[in-house]
Write a protein that binds this DNA or RNA. Sequence first.
DNA 1: TGGCTATATAGCTATATGGCTATCGAATCA
DNA 2: TGATTCGATAGCCATATAGCTATATAGCCA
Lengths: 111, 111
Amino acid sequence: MAIESHPLDATFAALSDPTRRAILARLALGEATVSELMQPFALSQPTISKHLKVLEHAGLIEGGRDAQRRPRRLRAEAMKDAADWIERFRDQWDRRFDNLDRHLAATKKET
Amino acid sequence: MAIESHPLDATFAALSDPTRRAILARLALGEATVSELMQPFALSQPTISKHLKVLEHAGLIEGGRDAQRRPRRLRAEAMKDAADWIERFRDQWDRRFDNLDRHLAATKKET
DNA sequence: TGGCTATATAGCTATATGGCTATCGAATCA
DNA sequence: TGATTCGATAGCCATATAGCTATATAGCCA
């Protein structure tokens, strides 16, 4: 691993777990407490809290407080950074540009 | 981890490493051999090969063969799947919708 | 105060990951 | 053929991660 890690490392790593993606999908509908978030899963509460910590570390969520509850909500900026990185490849799939690219690469090799 | 893993797990996990993202960026310009791909990094050849295997397993690249060379090229479909997943959150950042969302959540709580 | 509810933290285990060196296999070239 | 080049594979190590149970902390309520 590199000495210093890029913010996108943590973002994409956070997105690589299905439980965390489901949590994010839920939070897209509005903020939710830990109890609410753990509801759909057959996982222990500490496990969910750990996932939330990963998401928070990646900047994908943030937490408030409401008495003894710690409602989490989405932070869209980190998601946007990930989206922006992927967007650079858009033309490669959008316009079947990958086929064109292969053709160009093959053509260039001949010259 | 879940018993069966979603394809997106591997895709996002592959994207979480800066070396692999750099490799993908390079491949966006056209296909390249292992020797060419390892050039920008202070990493051993087997390490690069391992990264390539991760990318291939995630469906993000594919390999051809040209004599004893194994040129890799991008596979845009997997990238598109990742993009599509993230896109669902677009309105959350695009139109400052996260602020509106918070307002709605707060309002709903009052009723 | 005492007890209940909501969440965090500690500490353990098993597995996955990223790095390395050493070595093998296959194709090319002299 | 033999040497060289390109790349894959094996095997090792250190660290990170996902899960668990047990326990601690903090706020609310009777």
